[in-house]
């Protein structure tokens, strides 16, 4: 048990250092760098998750929330541009804490991609949704998030941030290896996704406005019912 853990930590560190050395070697391989960085940080979080013994109840709760986040968009198939995934992950992170929030987001993305088909976007999606949950959990208890408008603002901001994170790898693919693509292109690239991001943001705001309080109540009730109050 103990031995196993040390081996894993050493392996992880080794992996990280190999990755850094290689990056030092290669010139300007931004895309590779970013992929490696994202994968390593996800791995780091998961190892952290592993270090705590999670009770079956909590595990099941996390899985239910992640799977609902993953299938939540189905009822909205006939209503374009509204999807509750981000909302679900955000509320989960807010109620169950940063670590749970990250795990729910990451698992939702990974599992749904395992069913729909993986692509180079998988790690980015895991990171983006994971961070939604993580930040929602980190900011809970601060005065901003205790206010309803604060949570709405948070949702609005994440509508854009999410799009930006998902854009990074596409953008890096264009700029990699010292091409001189400038700031203008950068702006244009992100502006092109701004329409989608705005929809995402607006949909978050609407869902938070109408359903935020109810979901908070429901999730808190289950937190008690599952015996997860700290």
């Amino acid at each position: 048990m103990r031995f196993n853990k040390t081996v894993k930590t050493v392996l992880l560190l080794l992996l990280a250092s190999i990755f850094l050395v290689l990056n030092f070697w290669f010139e300007n391989a931004y895309l590779w760098l970013s992929f490696g960085f994202v994968l390593l940080s996800i791995l780091l979080f998961l190892v952290r998750f592993e270090s705590r013994k999670v009770e079956p109840r909590e595990l099941v709760l996390l899985a239910v929330l992640a799977s609902i986040a993953a299938v939540g968009r189905i009822p909205f198939a006939s209503i374009p541009s509204v999807q509750p995934t981000t909302f679900v992950i955000m509320m989960s992170g807010y109620v169950f804490g940063a670590e749970s929030g990250f795990v729910i987001g990451a698992v939702a993305a990974l599992a749904s991609n395992m069913i729909m088909g993986q692509g180079p976007w998988t790690p980015w999606q895991m990171t983006a949704w994971g961070l939604v949950g993580l930040t929602a959990g980190l900011l809970r208890g601060t005065w901003v998030m205790n206010k309803k408008w604060g949570r709405i603002l948070f949702g609005a901001v994440w509508g854009f941030l999410f799009g930006w994170i998902m854009n990074i790898w596409g953008f890096l693919a264009v700029v990699q290896s010292g091409s001189g693509v400038g700031f203008k292109a950068f702006l244009l690239y992100f502006a092109s996704s701004a329409v989608f991001d705005t929809f995402h943001s607006v949909s978050n705001v609407i869902l938070l406005l109408v359903f935020g309080d109810v979901w908070l109540k429901i999730l808190t009730r289950f937190k008690r019912k599952y015996g997860l109050l700290e």
């Binding site: 099941v60 899985a63 698992v107 599992a111």
Partner: peptide
Amino acid sequence: FAVLLMLTLRFI
């Protein structure tokens, strides 16, 4: 994490 992933894949 594998158990969590397994549960999620079963729940979807």
